[in-house]
């Protein structure tokens, strides 16, 4: 091994140079957003030496938080993402548990119908969904955004696959001890599936946080908007200057950035699990 390693070395150096120069280029748009957001209005933003020199200012942030409902939008986004994730985890776990452990009549049929839903993109049902929301008076409500997301079948599939792998003996032993089905779900299946649940939760949260098309259609009241819908609305008035829109971008991204930096390993692992299975 040692000999092999030393032989590969020139290649490794090249790989290092390539990888790290690429990652720097990759991060430039992000860094540019961070820096321009703290530059005073009208300062040159394309000359590197000017960019990294003071003056820096927090005025853009102050302006955005005073002139856009950014805190309200952040709250809406957080609320919708949290409720969607919690509801999805609870309901899909219950459904997956039944489909995996109880061979009732129609089990296969129900599972088949749910899985077929994986092929239905939201984009194809926006018209009937919108008309339904109009009919039931749900337009411009949190429910109009949360409910359709909860119906997504991915969670049922992921959790059922995991539940199928839990050994039957474990369930039988618990039944011998007198545990009923509800108890078995709560104290065996839920704790055992913690990592699958975390993966599904992360996936659901990110999807909800970044959901664009449906909230864009269902929400027209500025007070009810989520960040992805509110931000372009606010920015549409600032096409010429970029320091203020960039500060808005930063504020809209901060919650996600903080969560990502704290939980990056879990998030990336979780994404891998939802896709690979």
């Amino acid at each position: 091994m040692e000999i092999l390693k030393s032989r590969i070395k020139p290649g490794r150096t090249l790989l290092y140079i390539f990888s790290y120069s690429f990652v720097i280029i990759w991060l430039i748009p992000m860094l540019w957003m961070v820096i321009t957001a703290i530059k005073p209005d009208g300062s040159p933003v394309t000359i590197l030496t000017e960019l990294i020199k003071p003056p820096f200012t927090m005025d853009n942030y102050q302006y955005v938080s005073e002139n856009a409902s950014i805190w309200r939008w952040t709250w809406n986004s957080v609320y919708i993402a949290v409720v969607t994730t919690a509801l999805t985890l609870l309901l899909t776990s219950m459904a997956a548990y039944v489909l995996s452990t109880i061979p009732f009549k129609g089990n296969k049929l129900v599972f088949g119908i749910i899985i077929a839903g994986l092929m239905v993109p939201t984009e194809a049902t926006i018209i009937p969904l919108f008309l339904m929301m109009v009919d039931s008076g749900l337009v411009n409500s949190y429910s109009s955004i949360i409910f359709p997301s909860v119906a997504a079948p991915l969670g049922v599939l992921i959790l059922k696959q995991f539940y199928d792998s839990i050994p039957k003996e474990l369930v039988e032993a618990a039944e011998m001890d007198g545990a009923n089905k509800l108890r078995i779900w709560w104290s065996i299946f839920l704790p055992l599936s913690r990592s699958s649940m975390a993966a599904l939760g992360i996936f659901t949260f990110i999807s909800s946080w970044n959901n664009f098309l449906w909230p864009f259609l269902a929400i027209s009241d500025e007070k009810m908007m989520t960040l992805p819908i509110g931000i372009p609305l606010f920015q549409s008035g600032y096409a010429a200057e970029l320091t203020i829109p960039m500060a808005a971008n930063m504020l809209a991204s901060l919650p996600a950035l903080i969560v990502f930096i704290l939980f990056q390993k879990h998030i990336i692992k979780g994404i891998a699990m939802t896709g690979i299975k």
């Binding site: 540019w32 957003m33 990110i206 664009f212 372009p232 969560v259």
Partner: peptide
């Protein structure tokens, strides 16, 4: 993490950054 990072931003922020 660096390569994955943009994925957590919303499409509105991504589009705005690229337009600028």
């Amino acid at each position: 993490s660096a390569f994955f990072l943009p994925h957590i931003l919303s499409i509105s922020v991504i589009s705005s950054i690229w337009v600028f």
